[in-house]
Design a protein around this nucleic acid. Sequence first.
DNA 1: TACCGCTTGTGAACGCATGCACAAAGTCGG
DNA 2: CCGACTTTGTGCATGCGTTCACAAGCGGTA
Lengths: 256, 256
Amino acid sequence: MVSQRGEGETTSTPLEAADKERARAIPEAAVARLAVYLRVLSGMAESGVTAVSSEELSQAAGVNAAKLRKDLSYIGSYGTRGVGYDVEVLVSHIERILGLTRNHSVAVVGIGNLGHALANYGGFPGRGFPVTALFDVDADLVGIPVGGIPVNHIDEITAICLEREVSIGVIATPPPAAQSVCDRLVSAGVQCILNFAPVVLQVPDNVEVRKVDLAVEMQILSFHVARRADEAVHNSNGGVSVGNNGLGVDGMVIRP
Amino acid sequence: MVSQRGEGETTSTPLEAADKERARAIPEAAVARLAVYLRVLSGMAESGVTAVSSEELSQAAGVNAAKLRKDLSYIGSYGTRGVGYDVEVLVSHIERILGLTRNHSVAVVGIGNLGHALANYGGFPGRGFPVTALFDVDADLVGIPVGGIPVNHIDEITAICLEREVSIGVIATPPPAAQSVCDRLVSAGVQCILNFAPVVLQVPDNVEVRKVDLAVEMQILSFHVARRADEAVHNSNGGVSVGNNGLGVDGMVIRP
DNA sequence: TACCGCTTGTGAACGCATGCACAAAGTCGG
DNA sequence: CCGACTTTGTGCATGCGTTCACAAGCGGTA
Ligand SMILES: NC(=O)c1ccc[n+]([C@@H]2O[C@H](COP(=O)([O-])OP(=O)(O)OC[C@H]3O[C@@H](n4cnc5c(N)ncnc54)[C@H](O)[C@@H]3O)[C@@H](O)[C@H]2O)c1
Ligand SMILES: NC(=O)c1ccc[n+]([C@@H]2O[C@H](COP(=O)([O-])OP(=O)(O)OC[C@H]3O[C@@H](n4cnc5c(N)ncnc54)[C@H](O)[C@@H]3O)[C@@H](O)[C@H]2O)c1
């Protein structure tokens, strides 16, 4: 379907249009995996690997080879039959599809235990997510630099987020403050939120929320231990587990 | 189907057997949501709420009411038609299904930025996940208490994990160390691993891995921004987003 | 050039998850 | 006791995601 790119376009507009028609159709689960492939491929590129087959890449990414090929097919046909994929080419196309061709400025709200860790973490800027603003309600923290960036007071959030074009807001406040912080981020024009507080956030339709809930992760693990233990009791088979299969915890966006 | 519990069992064995037959059939996605329901219900219980309808609970959990009822039906029929659910009853049944009737001892490996945050976090013990051991390779850290628990050297991991019956290992080391730490945890009998390092871990079939990859989360958000921006360009509709629908980042368990 | 072996890309089948819609089953008021 | 009203539990249809299997396509080789 579609494709046949590189025919005779002068501007890049038709090409991009085709890509974005496609982008809409990429399954959510595939997007998550594409990010993983990208990381693996980046690692390979750094190690000097220039070509890779779907089999090799799928091994490294921990997925089924057929699934990997299907995932890649969502973004276009950039492989060579009989040979495999060019690592650089794949990297650049995945980056383009994931919108990583431009930087996404990140603001962290709540500079406590977790906020400190996030602000100090060096892994984000390198991947196109520079942390450009930190916020907290605690007056003692305001002005203190964490990870090289001074903490601002939460009341400045709207002005600063607009000014620095923050596109991702990270919420690392205690649960009771999370919704209010979220509302402020939204009114500052932030359309993506990564929420660490164990709260279900209410947001408008045009805002995307993803949550990371460690307690939920542990409870899922707990469930599998329990299940495995029972299986071991019922039939005395070794208790084989399939691992979590691509599902995970969700983002819970309310839509009215 | 099934149910009709509380008939005439003397021991609890037949009841539990029925539950565990069921447990095997609970969809992974439903398990993740059950953990969310549990959190919401616990909050309600603390606020003195004793009964709740599927409509109310689904609102609070950010899911469709029908889905919520179906999720609850996987664990049994504990509601009262025309009335709703008893909060306490639901809490105890979800806890039982998730295996939260017993504590799950947690060990954190890699007491850097993130490890400190995790060790200091008070939210785990209260939810049945006491952190009982910390490990790091850095000799300067060994012996220093973090969150009330002294850091041990990584070489002691096997002995201590066995002794303290650690059931969940949390990996918060730099990526290159993650696989080796994982292997040590596995050989210490740990069957559940929560991995923060951006690496695909290779584990035996009987070990369950879940990963939390913040860069991947951000890239998924980035994808949606890009998609939304394009939609806005193509047709000038407001750019409505569906939010992430219960999917997320996965755990990538290799099976040979 | 023609053939061979290898790997991609994808049509099609399957299975799981979601959401609808309604019967069953309960409460409450009279 | 009965009938009206409420809410659960679930059969069923629909849609999404995964997996299989294989034709199409490419590089290498004679
Ligand atoms: N630390 C962890 O490992 C961990 C693990 C899982 C979940 N979480 C969750 O992450 C969140 C943060 O955890 P933490 O351990 O860093 O908590 P923390 O108490 O150490 O830090 C919270 C910070 O948020 C600030 N804050 C409070 N109200 C605010 C507001 N309205 N606006 C801006 N800042 C505000 C506080 O001043 C504090 O600095 C919590 O919701 C917690 O449940 C943390
Ligand atoms: N800090 C964050 O916010 C953040 C965000 C996303 C991902 N991560 C990931 O989490 C992991 C930890 O991040 P961090 O910022 O805490 O790193 P960090 O460098 O601050 O801490 C790593 C710790 O692990 C210890 N360590 C190294 N090798 C070890 C080994 N073999 N055994 C035991 N301990 C060992 C180090 O001594 C150090 O204390 C990394 O893989 C990072 O990519 C962190």
